[in-house]
Simulated scan of single mutants.
Amino acid sequence: MNDVYINRTSHYFPNNPVSNDEMEEYLGYINGKPSKSRRIVLRNNAITNRYYALEKGGKITHTNAQLTAAAIKELFRNDPEGIRHIDVLSCGTSSPDQMMPSHGVMVHGWLPQLGSIEVVSPAGVCCAGMHALKYAYMAVKGGDAKTAIATGSERFSASLVANQFEDEAHKLEALEENPYISFDKEFLRWMLSDGASAFLISDKKNETGLSLKIEWMEGISYADHMEACMYMGAEKQEDGQLKSWLEFGHEEQNEKSILSIKQDVKLLSPNIVPLGGKILPELFERRGLNPDDITWYLPHMSSNFFKDKIYEEHIKLGHHIPYEKWFVNLSKVGNVGAASVYFMVDELFHSGQLKKGDKVFLLVPESSRFSYMYALLTAV
Rank of each mutant, 00 (worst) to 15 (best):
Y5D: 01
T151Y: 12
L212C: 11
L111K: 07
L246R: 15
E176A: 07
E247A: 11
L114K: 06
L246M: 12
N44S: 14
G288R: 02
S221D: 03
Y51C: 10
H11C: 12
A65R: 05
A71D: 04
I279L: 08
M373V: 10
D308L: 14
N2M: 05
N44D: 13
L212Q: 08
Q241Y: 10
E247I: 04
S351M: 03
P96H: 10
V333F: 15
F349G: 03
E366N: 14
R286S: 13
G104N: 01
T151W: 12
T378G: 04
Y311T: 06
E252S: 02
V140R: 04
S331G: 13
A338I: 04
G109L: 00
S269E: 15
H108V: 00
T63Q: 07
H85E: 15
H314A: 10
L363Q: 15
Y374A: 04
E247L: 09
V364M: 10
K309I: 15
I272W: 01
K36R: 14
L267A: 12
S90A: 14
G240V: 03
G82N: 11
A136F: 08
Q164T: 12
D264P: 09
N178G: 03
E186D: 15
A338D: 00
N15Y: 02
K332N: 14
I214M: 03
K36Y: 09
V88L: 14
D293T: 10
Y374V: 02
L280S: 01
N329H: 07
K205D: 10
N49Q: 14
L259V: 08
D224M: 03
S368H: 11
L67R: 02
R286Y: 12
Y311G: 05
G28F: 10
L283Q: 05
L363A: 11
C229H: 08
D239W: 05
L242E: 05
I261K: 07
M217V: 12
R286E: 14
V125K: 02
S157Y: 07
H350E: 05
G142F: 13
Q253C: 11
E22C: 09
N64T: 01
V380A: 13
V41Q: 13
E81F: 07
R189K: 15
S351D: 09
K356D: 12
S94L: 13
M230S: 15
E218Q: 06
T68Q: 04
Y51V: 02
S202N: 00
V140S: 01
R43W: 14
N163G: 08
D292W: 08
S153W: 03
F361W: 13
Y29C: 08
P281V: 04
D239Q: 04
